[in-house]
């Protein structure tokens, strides 16, 4: 702190002003810190102290004991995990693909420099992005399971709809930042809107967008691993079954399998992104 005050000697003619401003700053930040601390105390009081059923939880030993149930691996389960893992991986791939397809109109509408009819389509595009991002994948999966029935298809739709928001937002931002030169040149030669989109805009944003898609695909593997909780197939279903039959070592095995496919996905995405960018 002393070094900071030492710097103020350079501005000797305004020392009083500097000191007063600094005091003011300290006061505001002090008030903010106190408010934050109070908020923490209040939240801790409500959520942790009042809401928790301490008696049921018992002593620290009991908690450690119930956590210890998960220590250990059910090796017998691994052969049965291969198929659900493959299924999860496939759901993530197909979901990303479908998401990219849904992204195209969302991006086109949501980028304010190319949106076809601004007062209507721009808000529509933005709404699509917000809707997709603000609803959790579990909720999407529930909705699609109730509409399409149990199975991988509901999972694919949930993943697709959920990944629209991020991909479309990043792509729309990329489109808003493009160099307008080539587009003007194309317009001047008489290209129509579609041609401008295909030859003027797409080449400029493609590397960036592909990077985003690969990144989202990596996240989608993580997401598809849990969609089975609500009946959309894959590893989540096995996890849920192990949990409900109290086979806690099996739960650990499933988590290890999830790690496995996530690491595979990360390796793939590392090389793919390197190749793209």
């Amino acid at each position: 702190m002393s070094s900071v005050q030492g710097q103020a000697h350079g501005f000797e003619f305004t020392v009083e002003k500097v000191l007063r401003l600094r005091l003011q700053n300290r006061l505001t930040s002090g008030v903010m810190y106190v408010l934050m601390a109070l908020l923490v105390v209040w939240s801790v009081e409500v959520t942790i102290i009042e809401d928790t059923d301490w008696e049921r939880m018992g002593s620290l030993g009991n908690v450690i004991e119930s956590a210890g149930r998960f220590v250990g691996v059910d090796f017998a389960l691994f052969p049965d995990l291969f198929e659900p893992a493959l299924e999860t991986f496939m759901i993530a791939c197909l979901g990303t693909l479908l998401g990219v397809l849904i992204c195209i109109p969302a991006t086109w509408f949501g980028a304010h420099n190319i949106t076809p009819f601004k007062p209507v389509t721009y808000p529509t595009g933005r709404l699509m992005m917000i809707l997709s991002r603000s609803i959790h994948e579990i909720v999407w999966a529930l909705f699609f399971v109730s509409a399409l029935g149990l199975g991988a298809l509901a999972g694919i739709f949930a993943i697709a709809v959920r990944s629209v928001g991020f991909i479309a937002k990043m792509s729309a931002e990329a489109i808003e930042d493009i160099d307008p030169g080539p587009i003007e040149a194309m317009r001047a030669t008489g290209a129509n809107g579609f041609q401008v989109l295909l030859y003027g805009i797409l080449p400029q944003i493609l590397p960036q967008v592909l990077g985003v898609i690969i990144f989202e695909w990596e996240i989608n593997i993580r997401r598809s691993a849990i969609l089975g909780f609500v009946g959309a197939g894959g590893l989540g279903l096995v996890f849920f079954r192990q949990m409900n039959t109290f086979n806690f070592h099996g739960v650990t095995s499933v988590i290890i399998a999830i790690f496995g496919i996530i690491i595979i996905g990360e390796v793939f995405s590392y090389f793919a992104r390197k190749a793209v960018i």
Partner: peptide, 8 residues
């Protein structure tokens, strides 16, 4: 499953 229902 370790701590029981609640916000904790």
């Amino acid at each position: 499953s370790i701590l029981g229902f609640g916000m904790l």
